[in-house]
């Protein structure tokens, strides 16, 4: 057994193609970006080496920390949102009539590109003609808020859109995981008289805990580097109220020709993500992954 499964040649054959790809196309570029972060460079002219100046500036940059705070908030809410997504998946994966159709419908928004989703939510949040405010006015709310213009609301308004955008992604992962649970285990519990909720909570959830941990990491990492909808819907505004790290980085690197600084933000973002992920892994670590 051990001999077959320890064949170095096979391991190399299986791991190397993927490994070479990510080293060449992900590690290479991000290290070069780290190097650019040590430069004063507009992306066009000559580079000047400035050492850690960009990072020093970054540490004092209030706008950066504001956007970092927003990114962390997004990570927090994304992680929280996993609970309802897991609940929906438990229901759908249970023997509910029509669950097959419902599941397919639930995943539809995931197919839409960000361009479409951004347009939809801009229409929902439009302060005067928008769907949400039309509904609010109809039920008698006077002066409904101008969602994307209100610096206190805009961040949360966009969070709703982002969480909705990713619902399908997590539901499909949970669903597949739940479908992988051997029927025999659930049947056994039923015979013992466990209620569906008990089965879900005591048997199904622990069995897919490995997958749940993975989704927690995905939610946090995905949130910290999130960019799409925010850039299209508000451009980080008004007044920086919805700026996140990635949109701030993009602005610096591509819009204001401060490529060196933008690269420093990018590299710093990677470091932050690494640390947060490491902490998350420590916090969620258990004795070992569940195995049969």
């Amino acid at each position: 057994m051990n001999k077959v499964m320890s064949n170095k040649a096979v391991i190399a054959l299986y791991v190397l193609p993927a490994f070479i790809l990510i080293v060449a196309l992900i590690y290479g570029p991000i290290l070069i970006t780290g190097y650019y972060g040590l430069m004063d460079w507009d992306g066009i002219g000559a580079k000047t080496f400035v050492g850690l100046d960009n990072y020093m500036e970054l540490i004092k940059d209030a706008k950066f920390w504001q956007s970092a705070y927003h990114s962390f908030l997004l990570a927090f809410f994304s992680t929280l949102s996993l609970v309802p997504y897991l609940a929906i998946s438990l229901i759908l994966a249970g023997k509910v009539k029509g669950s097959d159709l419902l599941r397919k419908i639930y995943l539809i928004p995931m197919l839409l590109s960000s361009v479409a989703i951004a347009q939809l939510w801009v229409k929902i949040y439009d302060p005067n003609n928008g769907m949400l405010n039309s509904l609010l006015t109809m039920v008698g709310v006077e002066n409904p808020p101008a969602w994307l213009a209100d610096t206190n609301l805009v961040l949360y308004a966009i969070f709703v859109a982002i969480l909705w955008q990713y619902a399908g992604f997590y539901i499909i992962i949970y669903y597949a995981a739940l479908k992988g649970i051997p029927e025999s285990l659930v049947e056994a519990a039923k015979i013992d008289g466990a209620s569906p909720i008990q089965i879900a909570y005591k048997i199904k959830v622990p069995l897919i805990s490995g997958v749940i941990k993975v989704t927690v990491v995905l939610a946090i990492v995905g949130s910290l580097k999130y960019f799409d909808l925010i850039y299209v819907m508000t451009g980080g505004g008004p007044n920086g109220a919805s700026e996140v790290i990635a949109s701030y980085m993009y602005k610096k690197a591509f819009d204001t020709f401060d490529f060196g600084y933008g690269s420093a933000i990018a590299f710093f973002l990677l470091l932050i993500t690494l640390i947060v992920t490491w902490i998350t892994r420590k916090l969620t670590a258990s004795e070992d992954e569940i195995q049969y």
Binding site: Y125, D126, P127, N128, N129, L148, D150, T234, P238
Partner: peptide, 21 residues
Amino acid sequence: FINGFNGLGNDEAKGYFINEQ
């Protein structure tokens, strides 16, 4: 200025003008 102007893009603002709002 129109309600919520800081959250509206120029395309949307122009839409209000074209629709005589």
